[in-house]
Design a protein around this nucleic acid. Structure first.
Lengths: 98, 98
DNA sequence: TATTTAACTTTGAAAAACAAAGCACTTTTA
DNA sequence: TAAAAGTGCTTTGTTTTTCAAAGTTAAATA
């Protein structure tokens, strides 16, 4: 039997980053505050996980305005999509044996 | 939109514990060394994760003998099966939106 | 008898997660 | 117009988690 966890992506061990990605897969763009409320996180905690995801080039940040108010939104990158899909495939392989 | 990560079980955030459970779902019983080799872990690391799983009553330990040599094996409990399934369901719900 | 193996426990270090506070900027409210 | 509040962070420091390495006990083997 092969090591079943070898293909899991370490970045997605975190439930929060997993949550962010799963939200971004279905929402083209989402704001900082929406994410914060959805995942029930403090600012700092969310910001640092978003940062990890951005460092990995799995998400992109968009700084813009709504009217004249600043607004930061996030979206998934192609690389992020691929990595997330690969992770899910690895997960599925692990558990499909059920 | 509801918090997508609220129903994930914290115990299964760890890839290693996830791996142990996925192995135990398909193998009625497995030995310490087999697990160790399969998941490519050091003794101490595996032992501590097994301990966490045992504390939660998700796995059971069987101390026995092969001939007169000790042999420790592990199996999943009913509670463990339920918790693992619930976790997988929560995961699936998160990503089925794909 | 010396070495090896199994299955741990203990120790300690490194990494990760997290909350809280601070901050720069803008907008809203009194 | 002065104070309050919101946005999106960064910084700081604590707590939690992870992990490797070494030590341990008992039995097996050479």
């Amino acid at each position: 039997m092969k090591n079943p966890i070898a293909d899991l992506n370490k970045i997605f061990d975190s439930r929060i980053r997993l949550g962010v990605m799963s939200v971004l897969v279905v929402n083209d763009e989402i704001g900082f505050n929406d994410l914060k409320q959805m995942l029930e996180l403090t600012d700092g905690n969310l910001a640092s996980h978003l940062n990890t995801l951005e460092q990995a080039d799995f998400i992109k940040v968009h700084k813009g305005f709504i009217g004249r108010k600043t607004s930061t939104t996030y979206s998934i990158t192609e690389l992020g999509k691929q990595a997330f899909k690969a992770h899910l495939d690895a997960l599925e392989k692990m558990i499909k044996k059920l």
